[in-house]
Amino acid sequence: MYFQHSGEIWAEYPELVAGAVFATGITGEASAGPRIAEFGAVAGARLAAGPESEFPEIQAWRRAFSRMGLKPTQYRCAAESLLRRFKKERVLPRIHPLIDLCNAVSLAFAIPVGVFDATRIAGSLEVRHASGEESYLTFSGETENPEAREVIFADAAGRAHARRWTNRQSGYSAVRDTTTTVLIIAEAMHGSAAADVRELTSVLADELNGIWRAVPESAVLSRSSPRFEFSTSTS
């Protein structure tokens, strides 16, 4: 299996940097609370110094959404949505220890982080423009068809695992209590994205090892090295 961005996406967004982490041995019984609190404290300190709308990471995604023809204050990247909720409520709801951890890391770095049940991905996962024929399953169980040219995470079966790029994931590949094998993707476009995504990817790999004793595979992707290959055969 592999994850990649299409050549067209790299051509349109050459500033993009992506991090990918693949791991097995995940359970829903792990305790990640202390680490989640530490990452939340980092985000809280940064929010105390200024609003998330002024973060360069968020501004870069707002520009990208505008280039996609989307109103950036209507459709926000996942990191901005999390930061806005965290600023208001000072805590995020607990869903699953891995999702909670990834959300906390996303808050601390102000970078969108998506986590997928890798066994629900057919063959490959590619960030590309939609044809308009792909299917997307919402968390409420409804099926949608992304608009043509919308940026989606698509697998080889024509299933969209995220819509509007980093705006909304699908319920189909969402991590659940039975999930053991995951693919985690982080993406950024701001000036220091190369260094920040590399650090974020390393942090996630270390956390997976420390909390779940997993031995993750990871990579930082760029236009010159766009593909991350991994195998679920040992899961």
Rank of each mutant, 00 (worst) to 15 (best):
M1E: 06
Y2T: 00
F3N: 03
H5A: 11
W10F: 09
A11N: 09
Y13C: 01
P14S: 07
L16I: 06
A18W: 00
A20P: 00
V21W: 00
V21Y: 00
T24V: 11
G28V: 13
S31A: 10
S31N: 13
A32T: 04
R35N: 05
I36P: 00
I36H: 01
F39N: 02
F39K: 01
F39E: 02
A41M: 09
V42G: 01
V42E: 02
A43L: 10
A43M: 10
R46W: 04
R46P: 00
A48R: 15
A48Y: 13
G50K: 12
G50Y: 07
P51A: 13
E52I: 15
E52P: 00
S53R: 07
F55T: 01
F55I: 07
W61L: 11
W61H: 10
R63A: 04
R63N: 02
A64G: 01
S66N: 04
R67Q: 09
R67C: 08
M68R: 06
M68I: 06
G69Q: 08
L82H: 07
L82F: 14
L83P: 00
E89D: 10
R90Y: 06
R90C: 02
V91P: 02
V91I: 14
L92H: 03
P93S: 08
P93F: 12
R94W: 09
L98S: 01
L101W: 02
L101R: 03
C102V: 15
N103W: 07
V105F: 11
V105K: 07
S106G: 11
F109R: 04
P112F: 10
G114P: 01
G114I: 04
G114L: 14
F116Q: 07
F116T: 05
A118F: 11
T119E: 15
R120G: 05
R120K: 14
A122M: 02
G123M: 12
E126N: 13
A130K: 07
A130M: 12
T138Q: 06
S140A: 13
E142G: 08
T143G: 03
T143P: 00
E144L: 15
E144I: 10
P146D: 06
E147F: 08
R149G: 01
E150M: 12
E150R: 09
V151E: 03
F153K: 05
A154C: 14
A154G: 08
A154I: 12
G158S: 14
G158P: 05
A160L: 12
H161V: 06
H161E: 04
R163D: 00
R164H: 08
W165Y: 15
N167E: 11
R168G: 01
S170N: 12
S170M: 10
Y172L: 15
S173F: 11
A174N: 02
V175M: 06
V175H: 05
R176L: 14
T178Y: 12
V182L: 09
V182N: 01
E187K: 07
A188E: 01
T201R: 08
L204E: 04
A205W: 05
D206S: 15
D206G: 10
D206A: 14
N209R: 09
G210H: 13
I211W: 04
I211T: 05
W212T: 05
A214D: 05
E217D: 08
S218T: 14
A219S: 14
V220P: 00
V220S: 04
S222P: 02
R223G: 01
S225N: 14
R227D: 04
R227C: 05
F228D: 03
F230T: 03
S231C: 11
T232I: 14
T232H: 09
T234D: 13
T234A: 15
